[in-house]
Every structure is written in C-alpha cells, then in structure tokens.
Design a protein around this nucleic acid. Structure first.
Lengths: 135, 135
DNA sequence: TGCAAATGTTTGACATACCTAACTCCAAAT
DNA sequence: ATTTGGAGTTAGGTATGTCAAACATTTGCA
C-alpha cells in the first residue's frame, strides 16, 4: 500500500477552519441584527478584535468579504455562496451523524464543525440524498 | 442561532494533518520493508529530507516516534496506537463513502484523507457499526 | 584505504494562521 | 473642549510547515 500523494492537497483548501467561521459569523450576524462589524465578529467568535481585523483583511483580499464606507462588513456573492455551502454541509453532517449513525448530539456538533469546510460537494450531496432516501 | 463555541476546539487536535501522515508513512514503510529512515519518509511523502527531519524531531518530542542507534525510526506504543486509529478511520471513511454513499473512489480518498485525523472515535465507531449492520 | 555517494541535520528564508498588547481614531457626553 | 470609551489597525510574538543550501556523518565499493 502506497501513501497516496493526495495528502498534500490538504493545503489547497478553499478556506481555513477559522476563515469559514468568520464567514459564518458575518452571515449570522447580518441575518440576526442586520449588520456585522469587526467587533461584532470578534465577540461572536470569542477572539480579539485584532485577530478578527487581520483575519477579515485576508478574507477581503480573497474577495469573500466586503466593507462599506461605514465599516460594515458583508459577504460578497462568492463569500455568501461559500458560507451557505458550509452551513448546508454542517446541517447535513449533524443530521447524518445523529439520525443515521446515532452519534451523540455533542460529538456530532464537534465532528461536523471540524469537517464542514473540508468535505467535498460530491460527498455532501450524496449524504443528502442518502438522508432523503431514508426519510 | 448562535455560532457554537465549539469552533476553537479545532486547534486542540491531537495531531496535525502533516504529523498524521508522517506517522502513517513510518507504519507503512516498516510494514513493507522493515525499516523507515528519514530519507524513506521524505521520499514517501514527497518532501525534502530537511522538512522530514524537522517534522520528525517534533514527533519525537511528543513521544510518538522513536529512533534507534542506527537511525531507524519506529513508532512508540502511543504513536502506533494513534497511527492505527487513523488508518482505521481512513479505511472506514473510504468504505463508507464509496459503498454506502456511492461517492467516486477518487473523491472518497481525498475526503477521507482530509478528515481521517479529525473525526472522533465515537463517530468512527458508529460508522463502522453502520457498515457492519448493512453487510 | 580512501573517496564518492547517500544520509541526515541545521540554518535562514517564506508563507500561513493564530494570538496579545499597544496604539490611533473618532464620536458622544458632560 | 476635554475626557472617556468604543472601534479598528498595526506591531511583535508563537507555531507549523515548507524549501534550498551548507554542513556533517556514514556507508559502501573500487
């Protein structure tokens, strides 16, 4: 058995775990309260505003996050698409883990959180279809 | 909906992606040829011996890897346990993705590789049981 | 035995992704 | 107008993980 040369693809991920959660925070904050500033995101993620500022700058650089003249942050079309995909994946994963595999809700949430930004669209789709076929 | 404070647990992982693959390489190489040196591991992972040397030093520091007087590397009891757990997880994941979800083998391998070191024992176990119950 | 090839380590440079702490900037209240 | 506090950035530090290149060591063979 050969160690597959797939292993390095890990680095080529679209988004990091941290990055994903910044996007999700923006989406949730804007949905809940209508806006998201650096501070709001930092509070939501329980990190310092310094970290949030730096992290968000890089997301802006990637064209996933936008900032208006009043420093309100929002997701770009691409960012929104990505965030929604991740949320969908998390939902699917949690449902799958708890309903199908009967994993405890706590562990399901942790596992989903760790893998939600890594799983391919194909696998997520198939997982969805599987759940649907059982319902 | 609140962003769960679970998200930071990502950093508290037992092992990194890269670290995991170094362990797996040692296990596979020793199984296949009876030994694993820095060079062998570097070749197997397609990184320079410099990188391998540094990375392995840190794994030695964590007590996962040992070195004998001839510079042959091996896994400690703990390292072996960890490596075997990861391999088992990968096997389970691939089987699950391809057999149950009918994901393509290529994508299954990539997804398994990305998550094999992140999934909890509980979820892996449940996944195993699920496969068994269907067989 | 002696030299060349293989092996391994270290160093210095980069890139990413975090953090904290210190600083700037601005706006509102007194 | 001055102070105070909220908001945000920057600077400096840690940790990983990668590389190339200089160096040391070991091995093996001619």
């Amino acid at each position: 058995m050969e160690t597959p040369d797939v292993w390095k693809e890990f680095s080529g991920n679209v988004i990091t775990h941290s990055g994903a959660h910044h996007l999700l925070a923006i989406l949730e904050l804007t949905n809940e309260r209508g806006y998201a500033r650096v501070t709001d995101i930092a509070r939501s993620l329980e990190i310092t505003t310094g970290s949030a500022s730096t992290n968000l700058k890089s997301l802006k650089g990637k064209g996933l996050v936008q900032e208006d003249e009043n420093r309100f942050l929002s997701l770009s079309a691409e960012g929104r698409k990505l965030a929604e995909a991740i949320i969908k994946r998390r939902t699917t994963l949690i449902k799958f883990f708890t309903k199908v595999l009967e994993v405890s809700p706590e562990q399901a949430e942790i596992d989903a959180c760790k893998t939600e930004h890594l799983l391919s669209p194909e696998t997520t789709l198939k997982m969805d279809q599987f759940i649907a076929s059982k319902a």
